[in-house]
Design a protein around this nucleic acid. Structure first.
Lengths: 211, 211
DNA sequence: GTCTATACAGGGATAGAC
DNA sequence: GTCTATCCCTGTATAGAC
């Protein structure tokens, strides 16, 4: 149990999610973690590698959970509802809160920032390390919803991921705008409540799934 | 006619689009533009301000195109569908790509970054300069889906922006995956075609309205 | 193995001479 | 407007202490 690594991961996760990747310096991270500056490079190799490990801490728990839920769904004979499909992701995502308080939001924020920010290094890492899991997810979805082609599902899942991670990444800014323009005080729950129907609609229309 | 400003803008635009924002240094920009390092800060104030002006060169071309297309659509007698409105954005966006290689993707990446950025300088600039254009666009959407309140429309439009920015940020990788796994050759054009129905679906309240 | 102090090159920004 | 010199901060590498 290396406590320095974990202290760095926790500090980096918080700072990356709240201030952004580029706006967070190694010195800020190590100050917050109460460790020496050089320990980041000793334990992780580079700032970029640290970013990936921060996200992978969540992914390594998320992926097996999703696969397990998918296999469970495949065992049932009936055609799955759209809400059943979403709960495949919902429960594993909420479980991330057990790793670290607010973990679910951190993960989705970091994913969004990482996808848009980095030169595709995060993407490359994920598609390489979780190659088999990602393929399994697509194939399982295809078997469960034969009315959508595997390729259509691939795109739909990515669109949904985009909506989710972008919205959460920008959630602070968006709630500020809404407060200024519409005088409405919104919290994360409210945003999610607005987002879920939007995401679902994109699946229902083309797929003709039962709600 | 200040040629130094334009030389800097051209160099920055190219380098930002090909190597990314963070990976492009002021010294690279000024070397490519054959101007002095300090001239960037003299003419633009900061690297961030330069970025905003680079984006604005895209915006200043995009906005009139979109408005023109919208007005053309409104001249037709029938009520325009949501997907028809979204298709309005497609051609102007792709035009950015023909002006500068990778322009479409880079513009949307920067737009996404600007919205994720909690400081919101880019957001403030856009909403101020393109006030009337943005209001016109919002009104067009409001006419096509009057069942959505202004606040709901705000969120839906940002969900759509998130899907677009996120997806196109990864578009090169996604087309690679699709080619490898499904043996389908896709271009930016095709991705937008797949995205429009998905984005539009979220604007339609379950069951009614023309798609 | 782990941690610390420190050196270094490259980053953006700026003051002042021209 | 333009240029030089310089400032402080960044990520990274390394030598040496525990």
């Amino acid at each position: 149990m290396n406590s320095t690594k974990i202290k760095i991961l926790n500090a980096a996760e918080y700072l990356f999610a709240t201030h952004g990747y580029a706006e967070t310096s190694m010195r800020q991270i190590t100050n917050r973690a109460n460790v020496n500056l050089a320990s980041v490079n000793y334990h992780f190799g580079s700032k970029k590698a640290l970013t990936i490990e921060v996200i992978d801490r969540y992914l390594s728990q998320l992926m097996p959970d999703i696969i397990a839920n998918l296999k469970q769904l495949q065992n049932k004979k009936e055609e799955p509802s759209i809400s059943a499909i979403f709960s495949i992701f919902k429960q594993p995502l909420l479980t991330l809160n057990s790793i670290n308080d607010g973990g679910t939001v951190y993960f989705l924020k970091l994913l969004g920032r990482g996808y848009i920010d980095s030169q595709g290094h995060l993407r490359g890492f994920i598609t390489h390390k979780y190659q088999t899991e990602l393929r399994f997810i697509r194939q399982a979805f295809h078997q469960s919803c034969p009315q959508l082609s595997e390729e259509e599902l691939f795109w739909h899942l990515h669109f949904a991921l985009g909506t989710t991670s972008f919205t959460l990444s920008a959630s602070d800014a968006l709630t500020d705008i809404v407060k200024a323009d519409f005088n409405t005080e919104l919290y994360l729950d409210d945003i999610l409540d607005r987002m879920v129907p939007y995401i679902s609609a994109g699946f229902i229309r083309q797929g003709n799934l039962n709600v």
